[in-house]
Design a protein around this nucleic acid. Sequence first.
DNA 1: GTCTATATTTGGATAGAC
DNA 2: GTCTATCCAAATATAGAC
Lengths: 198, 198
Amino acid sequence: MTSPRSSARERILDAYQACLNDLGERAATLDAVAAAAGVSKGGLIYHFASKEALAAGLVERLERLGRDDVEAMGSTAESAVGHFIRSAAHAQSPFGLTAQAVQTLARSGHVGAVRTMHALEQEWYDVLLRATGDRVVARMAQLVGDGIYYNAALAVTEPATVDPDETGEPGEAEAHPALPSPAEQEDLVRALLRMIDD
Amino acid sequence: MTSPRSSARERILDAYQACLNDLGERAATLDAVAAAAGVSKGGLIYHFASKEALAAGLVERLERLGRDDVEAMGSTAESAVGHFIRSAAHAQSPFGLTAQAVQTLARSGHVGAVRTMHALEQEWYDVLLRATGDRVVARMAQLVGDGIYYNAALAVTEPATVDPDETGEPGEAEAHPALPSPAEQEDLVRALLRMIDD
DNA sequence: GTCTATATTTGGATAGAC
DNA sequence: GTCTATCCAAATATAGAC
């Protein structure tokens, strides 16, 4: 409650998030985060007293953004499935970046992160089930979305490798992008909606 | 090439894998791995000269197991989609455990792990596309499988929490298990196969 | 092949100046 | 509110005994 919207805290959380996404949990040290945020370690510690406080802050941010995301799904099959798939594929959104970082935390054994991710999964499923009225479609939509999140996480880590000694070999199966294009996203949404008591 | 099938190496890799899956990358220290494998740190180092060698060994194991898994998919739509979904849900299999551990490594920024996971994803997609002849179905099947892997990873980390003060509240949406049951798996497979030029 | 030291480095956190 | 300096614990890796 000091600077306008306590922007220092937010900038530090952004930096932590970016370190987690780009370098992994191991490399997301206080030094690295401080450097990325443009402050000293001491400056960082003033805002977040410990590493754990930093993690807790990020989890809390996800809970906030997650509530908005769930709400934005609406209650019709079209809106719920459509929003869920498109939102998952939009890896660069504030929500996507935070979700990915918290996923990394969860994977590192952070209990709060695991709990929050589980709760979010459950909420998504509830909305999808109510909106579609079909258990199989709801489950499938959720897994497709999770799969997209999973691929987004792998994709970001990768340094856009183009192997120089095997470009354009003709006749080999074409490489498909890790994330579905917008057109593919719409194909997926349509296919899921068509499945409803079909 | 000393003990029968150099079982010490394998036991150490098993221990490393288990540490990664149960505790996360951060906690998978040489001490922890040595303890889990029942050897001293020095004993471990004799077999794997560095932390990096340990990681490389695990990635290599996944490449071996991955080749078998891709081959087991077969070439019909039924066999490919069916095997892929069931294999993903079988989180406790040797392949599942290794895949999960390497996923954790990938998430921690290990470049070899990222590369191998990407290659595996591409191979799965190629087989699914050839077997189904349908881009949307192949992509959907792959994302569903990835989603299952993702949930399996979250599920294992969780210490089977049963929150004591909110059990069996009537009227709340029932909690669905993170991993689809065998019956649900078959529903998913059937739904995917029905989608083929439908 | 496996163990017990031990050296080296790094990461997390404190104290206190500005 | 932010910085520098410093302490302490933990993690990787080495050396060499058994």
